[in-house]
């Protein structure tokens, strides 16, 4: 088991390096720092001095890969590649355009993101599994049919509308909770209720339908017939046998998402003014703050890889057939 985890972590390294190379290529090779400076400063009538100043402020005034002027090791380290890409492995992301340290900013913003994402994840999973079980229990009935139609209809509405509609109805018409904002501690609850509920509703259509399909697939298997032949009731078959087996693909499908919960949700956070990583990202995108976007790409990939590892481990916990080698 330990050897397996070590091996997986070793496998993760080349992937992170790959991610790093892709971002490096995207940000510094496809476009030169000069291009970026020109765009940010306004394409027309920008003086070379202004470009140099912009680059110097951000540390983009070094050579890309090899600094022939620098002595010794510095030839490799005093480069954009080392300063901007390699240093990420030490969680040194540099500074954002507003001068703040990106690593610290990320650390403080994880908590609000998690405060939204975690309840959404748990409630959403619970609700979807419950509804899917309900539909499967009443399979091939009108309840099932209209349930599926309802799920498809729910899936067909853009997430934006759930947010806009929810804010309008709950905050503007009913005045139940503030329309947006965030506070630490116990006060957070009143700001969190609406975004959490809206996210759960927004995602429930597709996941319910997906889980229903998994349950139905499971229910056609031979062991279910065996369980019925034992004399088990339909409910006992569903909860005692089908649920456990169907939870394997469900759990392992969602475990990969758990680390990514730290990243927060772009839409929800920006609509509700929650100072998490999602809104941080979206602000950086809108402000074209390349350093922050790069940092988020790195963090996101890292968390995804952790998620993959957790998925494999979770397999061993829920499925006796899987032994990690």
């Amino acid at each position: 088991m330990l050897a397996y985890i070590i091996r997986r972590l070793l496998y993760a390294l080349p992937i992170l390096i790959g991610v790093n190379l892709i971002t490096f290529a995207l940000f510094f090779v496809v476009n030169s720092p000069d291009d970026m400076a020109r765009m940010q400063l306004g394409v027309k009538r920008v003086t070379p001095e202004a470009i140099e100043k912009w680059k110097a402020e951000r540390g983009y005034d070094r050579p890309l890969l090899w600094n022939a002027q620098a002595p010794g090791v510095a030839a490799a380290t005093e480069t954009i590649f080392f300063q901007k890409s390699v240093k990420m492995f030490a969680f040194d992301f540099g500074r954002a355009d507003d001068g703040r340290d990106i690593a610290r900013e990320i650390a403080t913003r994880m908590a609000p993101s998690l405060a939204v994402a975690l309840p959404v994840f748990a409630l959403g999973l619970f609700a979807a599994v419950t509804f899917a079980l309900l539909l499967v229990y009443f399979r091939a009935s009108y309840l099932d049919f209209w349930g599926v139609v309802f799920c498809v209809a729910m899936m067909s509405v853009s997430g934006l509308f759930y947010i806009i509609g929810g804010q309008w109805l709950v905050s503007k018409v009913w005045h139940l909770v503030p329309i947006s904002g965030y506070a630490g501690g116990a006060d957070a609850a009143k700001f969190l209720v609406l975004p959490v509920i809206i996210s759960v509703i927004g995602g429930i259509g597709s996941s319910t339908r997906w889980y229903r399909t998994l349950f139905l697939e499971e229910i056609t298997k031979d062991y279910v017939r065996t369980a019925r032949a034992k004399g088990l009731s339909e409910r006992a078959v569903l909860f005692g046998h089908v649920l456990r087996n169907a939870l394997i693909p469900i759990l392992t499908g969602v475990v990969v998402l758990i680390p990514l919960l730290f990243m927060g949700s772009l839409l929800i956070e920006s609509f509700f003014g929650i100072p998490g990583l999602g809104s941080y990202t979206i602000d950086a995108i809108n402000a074209q703050d390349f350093a922050v976007v790069r940092a988020m790409v790195f963090i996101g990939s890292l968390l995804y890889i952790v998620g993959l590892l957790l998925t494999d481990i979770s397999y061993t916990l829920v499925d006796p057939r899987v032994r990690l080698q």
């Binding site: 992937i15 892709i22 476009n31 790409v297 995804y304």
Partner: peptide
């Protein structure tokens, strides 16, 4: 590798860069 980069961020990064190209 491509999968491990969260979709929105990869798109964001690529679109930002593409924007630079188109603008220049």
């Amino acid at each position: 590798v491509l999968n491990s980069i969260p979709g929105v961020l990869l798109i964001a990064a690529a679109v930002l860069m593409m924007q630079v190209i188109i603008d220049t």
